[in-house]
Design a protein around this nucleic acid. Structure first.
Lengths: 196, 196, 196, 196
DNA sequence: AATGAATGAGTGTTCATTCAT
DNA sequence: TATGAATGAACACTCATTCAT
């Protein structure tokens, strides 16, 4: 019978530890921000000895950079995924409204996004990351809207998500939808398809 | 002959010191972020002894809150001001485009804005501040656009400013203008006025 | 009509302020100990501006010394007083038992006494104070018991008071009495009087 | 030839460091009192970097508590030891007189005892420690005197030790002895043994 | 006489990082 | 390879004391 997992495993070989530490770092970023992350908090969160964190990552900045990289990777894939089922303009609108109104489930993602943006403001390496991320996101959107609309849509979404994060009175779904529909511009064709 | 400014004046009486410390705190916030602010950096920036900062502000959190409050105050006034000369739709568009494209002169403002937003995410007192600020900004916009458009315009501007801050290839002015014009929606009247 | 006393009176002339500050200092000593006393706590307790405390007392050590002096003065008088009504051996025993079992009303006194003793261990000025105090106390006791008994009685009382302060299970009154009676030694005469 | 002790050894491995820090803390308590102890003083006394003290003890209060616990442990053993050679009533008296008159060699012990008592007044954890200590001491005494006499003897000893610590004119040994003999009460048997 | 402002020294504590094992 | 011990730098904050007014 399997032994119950003890709170501090002494496993000498733990190939996924790096990943677990990175996820723990993201958890800490969500709750305490880039301002509040420390080796110790990450180690505690990952249930790993302190030395293990400094062993696997050259510095806290390095850990942060790799954690953010992991986040962007995951989020890009997730974002991509969101659009696989989009076939009509209405599908697109619905997906984007969900993105903004996402509720607590997407709060984590959103917070990390803004943490990354702010950190990137003063860290060139992270700036590269945000630029690639922005480029990729817009590319996904552009498949449905063309590049110009994609850019403004992206900005609008970002602003709306930030506001959603901070407000106590969430915007009605209908208003979010209207804003998105307007940003998408007039439907190009007569039908409901995306007209590409 | 002017006295040479000594590196540490022994000025015992300095009634505007509080304000100077707050401005120094904002300077530090711009360069190092809320993550990097310390009493010592603020004191050095304000050319004031360390004890002076802790004397005037009960805690670093208190100092931060008051600095952000000062920033919002200034920025609200400045924002209000921007629109005194706006009479036509084109005026409005031009002012908003400037807001986004503002260049280095507005970088400080923008950075502080995002620092505040992020800090507010985990600090209820600051959240009150951002909420009031958002409300006030939208109210100003709403005078020209009505409340609904004001909301989406505000989000769009925020997103565009964030992107402008992070990109190395600034968006052409024309694209920014197009996005804003679209967000404003179709001109209500036939003329160039704001149609209110 | 009399103005309601505001929490911080701006009375320029306040001849009893020194005394009030000393009493406040004793209050702080009771609650925080000699380890925890500060100008600020005393000022707050006395409802007096910080500058007033440093104005009236040359240093914190000075304030402490004068506060303890005031305490000894009061306590000596009080102690003396206790014995004015003592005429018989039984009276004496009863008064001493009360001294030990005194309950919360005497806790303040007892705590201050031990604070003083400990402070005196490292401060020669305070040591003079404790020596005089001890001498006076013993002199009062000696009027009833002779000097030798007075000394051991004093020590016994001190020890019992300290234990009473620290225990959660107070000693029965009867046991305290028995210890005191034993320390007093066999009644010198046949009667109930003190036999002097 | 012995190596000269360098002021700061770079000893990375030092398994008894915790104990040495605790002993250093007791030294500081003796010289400066609970009021005067600081991490830095302890570190200097133990010849250990500041960070080492905070590394081994979660807080200054923790350090204090453990130092006092160590003291009580040592003192209890020592006290117990004192009585192994006691067989007659005279032996007992002699040991107790030594305890009070102990001279400088016992000054350290006595000071720490009073520091602990005073600290316990405001710290429930330390109060537990003093209660256990008192109980143990009395139990040792009670083996020779019975519980009731043990209690009053304990109080008397405490009071006499405090006075011995503070006086400049030490009490003659004979007087101390008389007080103890009286507290022990009349010898129970005819002989010199303890009559248990 | 009295006090608010000011400041330098020092406090407990946290932490990134190093290193011996 | 992994980690507990260790440490120096820095931090937020407190405070006795000074001084201009």
């Amino acid at each position: 019978m399997a032994k119950v997992e003890s709170p501090r495993r002494a496993r000498r070989h733990d190939p996924e530890r790096r990943q677990r530490v990175l996820d723990a770092a993201l958890d800490v970023l969500v709750s305490d921000g880039a301002a509040g992350i420390t080796h110790r908090k990450v180690a505690a969160r990952a249930d790993v000895p302190l030395g293990s964190v400094t062993y696997h990552f050259a510095s806290l900045a390095d850990l942060l950079a790799r954690a953010f990289a992991r986040y962007v990777e995951q989020r890009t894939a997730e974002f991509e995924n969101l659009f696989t089922a989009v076939h009509t303009r209405d599908d697109l609108v619905e997906v984007l409204v969900d993105l903004v109104q996402g509720g607590p489930s997407r709060r984590r993602s959103a917070v990390l996004g803004f943490e990354l943006h702010l950190a990137a403001l003063r860290n060139p390496d992270l700036r590269k990351l945000t630029q690639q991320w922005t480029k990729d996101s817009r590319a996904v959107l552009a498949r449905f809207t063309g590049p110009e609309i994609a850019g403004r849509l992206d900005a609008l979404l970002e602003g709306m998500i930030m506001h959603a994060l901070l407000t106590t009175e969430p915007e009605p779904r209908e208003m979010t939808r209207a804003a998105i529909v307007q940003a998408l511009g007039p439907a190009s064709g007569s039908g409901n398809d995306l007209g590409q």
